[in-house]
Amino acid sequence: MRSKTRIAFLAATAITALALAGCSGTGGDNAGDSAGDGAATSPTVMKLALNQPETHPSYIALEAFGEQLKEATDGRWDIEVHANSTLGNQDEYLQSVSQGVIDLAIVSAPQLENLNKEFVLFSLPKVFDNIDHQMSVLDDQELVGDVYSSLEESNNISVVGGLTQGERSIYTKDGIVETPADLAGKKIRVQESPVFLAMIEALGASPTPLPFGDVYSGLQSGVVDGAENNEISYFSNKHHEVAPYFSLTRHLVGADFLIINSDTLAEMSDEDRAAFDEGWTAAWEHHTELWKTDTKTAVADAEAGGAEFAEVDTEAFAEALEPLIDEFLTEDSQIALYEAIRSAAE
């Protein structure tokens, strides 16, 4: 059990503790009383941190995941989703999950790169052909299982699985970007990741790291001239209001990952762990279908709000980004995983 380490951490991080005040406790001092042992079992409510709004497919699918888990475990386990970055930004989620301040979080692939270089594969351009190819890989335990478990001993974090971020493109305040040359001199918001920094530099722009929650104000104030993301995040976070030009560069199919505190996961009985895994499969499948339909809706709604979507010179962008594969895949294990992912597309 990890109560002593958690209490120490909560005392040292009062601000985080205040943000969580009033929520049900995390972790499983109660979880050891499995069904049928005759002991009274109190529900264990796991907090899940998310930086997207309640209208986002991730929130909808994860809420359903919690409901299914609660029903399947007769109330022994539940998930409480905290949307809109109310539990902090993604760069804070890793430490919070590792220390058990929160149990679960959705983090983008770049957040995991510094912990294990294998995760760089999930952020590189043109690794995945499309969403279906991506999700078949992210759910293939034989292919990615070792990567998912690689953070357990060092960081007390287990990767449960992935969610698609769809195709990511570039949007700007001042005009459509047709070729990389149109990005010269522009400050483009990126996640703070070596791959994303190099990607924007390869396209001729100036990469500017910002927390996701600061992108709207950054665009509005001129701190950045544009950003890169998918259509759903673009519309659901109202970025179309301040950056109405969406250039369909489709430079990569992005990935999010559900991470969980490894101690919390270990506290589940075999029966409850099976229910958790089954619920997760239903969640990512639900999310994928929502993503496909909601992308079309987001484009239509953004256009109705004044946004302009346009195709670009796809070959010019692909040529500019091609060197990133050789630049970042420097280890045999990375290359082997890349080749396996590409083979899965054939």
Score class of each variant (00 low, 15 high):
D263E: 15
T5A: 15
E80W: 11
S217T: 14
P57K: 01
I260C: 13
A205S: 06
Q52G: 00
E178Q: 14
A8F: 03
T26Q: 10
Q68G: 03
A298K: 08
P180Q: 04
A243Y: 06
S85N: 06
E192V: 01
W284Y: 15
T208K: 14
K117G: 09
I79S: 00
A320C: 04
D225Q: 05
G75P: 10
G305S: 11
M135Y: 08
L62G: 01
V159I: 15
L258P: 01
H251T: 09
L48R: 01
A307G: 02
D270F: 08
V159W: 11
D326P: 04
M1H: 13
N156E: 08
L87V: 09
T264D: 15
R2T: 07
K47V: 03
G162P: 04
G25D: 14
L203F: 04
A72Q: 12
G162Y: 11
T44S: 14
E231N: 03
L87W: 05
P110L: 08
E278T: 15
H133M: 12
A266V: 02
W291A: 04
K70Y: 08
A14T: 11
V101D: 09
S221V: 08
H82D: 00
L258R: 07
W280R: 12
S193Y: 03
I157M: 13
F276E: 14
V242C: 02
N130Y: 08
H240K: 06
A19G: 13
D129Q: 12
P110D: 07
E201A: 15
K47Y: 00
A340S: 09
E80G: 00
G28R: 09
P323Y: 11
A243S: 14
F309Q: 08
V81K: 01
P244S: 00
D272G: 05
P110A: 06
P209G: 08
L197E: 10
I232T: 07
L48Y: 05
V195F: 06
V312C: 07
W291G: 08
G222A: 01
M135W: 04
L48V: 00
Y148S: 00
D277N: 13
H251Q: 14
Q99S: 11
H239K: 10
P211V: 02
K70F: 03
Y171I: 13
Y93Q: 02
L248A: 10
G161T: 03
E285W: 01
N237C: 03
P244E: 00
F65R: 00
S149H: 12
T297I: 09
T86M: 02
L203Q: 02
G175R: 03
H287A: 08
V147F: 13
E142M: 08
R273Y: 15
E289H: 11
S333E: 14
G204I: 07
A109H: 04
Q52F: 05
A198V: 04
F276R: 12
D214N: 12
V224G: 10
H287G: 07
A40M: 12
A39H: 10
I102V: 13
G185Y: 06
S193V: 02
G145T: 01
M1R: 12
K126Q: 15
V253W: 13
P125Y: 13
T249A: 02
D225E: 09
G28S: 11
R6C: 08
I102T: 15
P323E: 07
S154P: 12
K238P: 00
G161R: 05
H286I: 00
S24M: 12
S149L: 12
D214E: 14
I232P: 06
T16F: 10
H240N: 12
V190D: 01
D29H: 11
L124K: 09
